[in-house]
Design a protein around this nucleic acid. Structure first.
Lengths: 335, 335
DNA sequence: TTGAAAGCGCTAACAG
DNA sequence: CTGTTAGCGCTTTCAA
């Protein structure tokens, strides 16, 4: 007699053990009121059948699945990878497993209605709670907890983790100004993101505080990619009166600054000082001075927060702000 | 009247649109055989309710979910990250979304029965196919396709992607030997992995072919981590007759070689030549000579393979071997 | 201590 | 073109 293609269900286990499905369900859920002997019989049936209960079916009866979801538009960015590392660390220490959901592509999933869709997809069925990265929407409906990392909106209706982007930018600029720089270029990030706006404010305010007039030609648009970092830098360095330093909105962009400078035969930091924002591993190898945004830590804390919420513990605060720190490496020099 | 905590179901949509649930189901799926006017009414009901169909419930009726699973013991390793990038790229171009499953920790999930469990968890419910990385088991039961990347076993009962580890190791060694090296250290990988065994064979055979006797003291155990790379290198370099070059079983380990050499006040490549295996981004920044294992490509091809299987297309072969290539950077020199 | 039965939200015949 | 009906595999009362 050959086994059917069909994988084992709770019924198969019940039949093999000579009990009813409800009894099997009981031992599956670690209920106490099952006779020792029955329990053993069922367990060995489970073993011999290689039975694993269906996630889908279990989810439908709304039990806890010990599963946390992480919604990421695109898994490839260093930014995303760092956050995932943090989440992974927290997961490793917990009783939860992790389900990362991605469409593989920002384009596919950038609207608020898509976000709501993904949340519903996970949280209304298989997942006990969800972490969403850089959501555009200001509110979500969900019957399980949601935690967001770096949301577009400042005051969403769900708990969120933010880095102190403003203070970080201020620190970076103050450092450059102390070094004697007066003409400092800025390569912006995606303008719709709260984090990018804050970093720009820091740039502005640091200049103002130092009594340096803002030169709009020194502010280049960007989108957090290396490619626009290259383009923006090329433009800035070809200015009649080019900057002596560039503060890039994130590390990816700063990597582009390196590339562009090399293309133009310039050396960092001899000819140009550079600071990035984020502190991804690539930045470390480039010896790039960065504002540490604690990406890993954000992922870690978001996960902790989510687990607390799932366990119905109360949060000290709905908004967690992580302090930033300037990491000085070898990419800047005094003028 | 306040909305209930309960999120909208297909019943709510049906009621709101004044039709039966099966009609709603129809527009949700095939969308043939439904009057235009009815369709519109249902769609606007879906819109206004913010309805998303339950993944769990849908999965139970065994429909296609356009979801591929990727099972990863630990998401943090550069190795894992590179594979995920490749998978992500293939996913981005496909109509499938991706669900990465991880326990956050290799320990939690290293046994064959765990693997079977995860496969069953995903494939017997929500996922249309699964990619599993470095599985220990030789066979799995599942009613949806499985593709593996770098399985422990050479001939598993499921399709798999392998890099040509043997040829790669041969190339690396041949290169070092041509450079004049005679005493070449080897830092091994996890001995239970097929890939690690093959690389060691390549090391042995290249020496034999060059007529160089194998010195067992030059072969250090390792486990693919930077930490053991440091330890092994320290040991090797403190030998009475230390090696002039080290071939590390993977890039992480090779990074450890760098660290250890620096600790000992040695320079690479002036005092020591190093080659790693994998070609992760960190290696690039270290200017480390590597054997490109096409990690990204493995992820990409595995995903393609999985999609083909899901679509019931036939594979040319159950085993896909990816050629490797030596990427010469600045970490080796002639003797 | 166990079983029968109801139903979670959905899809898929089968009628009409 | 649309509604009725019967489950998918599981948990959970409620009885026995």
């Amino acid at each position: 007699m050959t086994t059917k293609k069909h994988t084992a269900t709770i019924h198969d286990v019940a039949r093999q053990a000579g009990v009813s499905v409800s009894t099997v369900s009981r031992v599956l859920n670690a209920r106490v009121d099952v006779a020792e002997e029955t329990q053993e019989r069922i367990e060995s049936a489970i073993e011999s059948l290689g039975y694993t209960s269906s996630l889908a079916a279990r989810s439908m009866r709304s039990r806890k699945n010990f599963l946390i979801g992480l919604i990421m538009p695109d898994i490839e960015y260093p930014f995303a990878v760092e956050i995932m590392k943090g989440v992974n660390q927290a997961i490793a220490q917990s009783e939860f497993d992790l389900l990362v959901y991605t469409t593989g592509n920002v384009q596919k999933s950038v609207t608020a209605s898509h976000e709501q869709h993904f949340i519903a997809l996970l949280n209304n069925s298989i997942t006990d709670g969800v972490i969403i990265v850089a959501p555009a929407a200001a509110s979500f409906e969900s019957n399980s907890p949601i935690v967001s990392i770096d949301p577009h909106q400042i005051h969403p209706n769900f708990p969120s983790i933010h880095a102190n982007n403003y203070q970080g930018a201020l620190d970076a600029m103050t450092y450059l100004i102390r070094l004697g720089h007066r003409r400092i270029g800025f390569i912006a990030g995606r303008p719709e993101l709260e984090s990018a706006k804050r970093r720009l404010s820091g740039y502005h305010d640091a200049l103002a505080k130092a009594g340096i007039a803002v030169d709009e030609t020194l502010i280049a648009p960007g989108d957090f990619t290396e490619k626009t970092g290259v383009e923006a830098t090329t433009k800035l360095l070809n200015l009649p009166d080019p900057p002596t330093a560039i503060f890039a909105c994130n590390d990816q962009t700063a990597m582009g600054v390196y590339t562009a400078a090399e293309n133009l035969g310039l050396k960092i930091p001899e000819d140009l000082s550079v600071i990035g924002f984020d502190n991804i591993p690539e930045a470390k190898f480039r010896k790039l001075t960065t504002v540490d945004q604690f990406l890993v830590k954000m992922g870690y804390l978001a996960t902790e927060m989510c687990i607390k919420l799932i366990n119905k513990e109360t949060l000290e605060s709905d908004i967690l702000k992580i302090p930033t720190e300037l990491v000085v490496r070898e990419s800047c020099r005094a003028i």
